[in-house]
Simulated scan of single mutants.
Amino acid sequence: MKTTSLTDIHRLTWTALMAALIGAGAYLNLPIGPVPVSLQTFFVALAGFALGPKRGALAVGLYLLAGIAGLPVFAGGKSGIGHLCGPTGGFLIGFVFYAFIAGLARADENISWARGFVFGILGMVVLFALGAVWLKLSLDLTWARTWAAGVAPFILWGLIKTSLAVITGRHLIRAGLLPMRT
């Protein structure tokens, strides 16, 4: 399919919008336990479902660059390269992989329920694996403590947010609001 400059602008706008929503998701949270549950992962998965693997990962990359540049887009209004290299840095980097893998669900300009859930959960597994390894190494925790602090409390929330992202992505595609996948 031949693209036009308007199609390119549409894609760029959605990519920037998803990056901004991921940043806003850091402020939309439920303060439970030592680490609040934010809507960032919902928007990361939605970026993949809405934009496909490349543009979804690009949206997360833009979000990370904004945080590194000093915009307060990381959890708790934090920013800077130091935060990216801190204990939660593996989760932040894992966002790129999560969006890419979730984006693979958008096969033929649509997302089936099965593909959405499978690729969303696979992306979530990669996100948690990268985040857990980084957390363990940066804080010198045991695997049991890493699991208890950085993974277990977020699994159910991750499944809920991934499910909601599939629903939202399917709705946006059916409504014709999203650009074609690239």
Rank of each mutant, 00 (worst) to 15 (best):
A105G: 13
A105M: 13
A105C: 12
R106I: 00
R106V: 01
R106F: 14
R106L: 05
R106Q: 12
R106A: 09
A107G: 07
A107N: 10
D108E: 15
D108A: 15
D108W: 01
E109M: 07
E109C: 06
N110R: 14
I111L: 14
I111Y: 10
S112L: 11
S112V: 11
S112T: 15
W113K: 11
W113H: 13
W113R: 10
W113S: 12
A114W: 02
A114R: 14
A114M: 07
A114D: 02
R115S: 14
G116P: 11
F117P: 01
F117Q: 13
V118R: 09
V118I: 15
V118Q: 02
V118W: 08
V118G: 00
F119H: 05
F119P: 00
F119K: 04
G120L: 01
G120Q: 04
G120T: 11
I121K: 00
I121W: 04
L122W: 06
L122P: 04
G123F: 11
G123N: 08
G123T: 08
G123S: 11
G123V: 08
M124P: 02
M124K: 03
M124Y: 05
V125C: 12
V125F: 14
V125E: 00
V126H: 05
V126R: 05
V126K: 07
L127C: 12
L127S: 03
L127W: 04
L127M: 12
L127K: 02
F128N: 02
F128Y: 12
F128T: 00
F128D: 00
F128K: 04
F128H: 02
L130Q: 03
L130W: 02
G131F: 01
G131W: 01
G131H: 06
A132M: 13
A132W: 04
A132F: 08
A132S: 13
V133K: 05
V133F: 06
V133W: 10
V133M: 01
W134A: 06
L135Q: 06
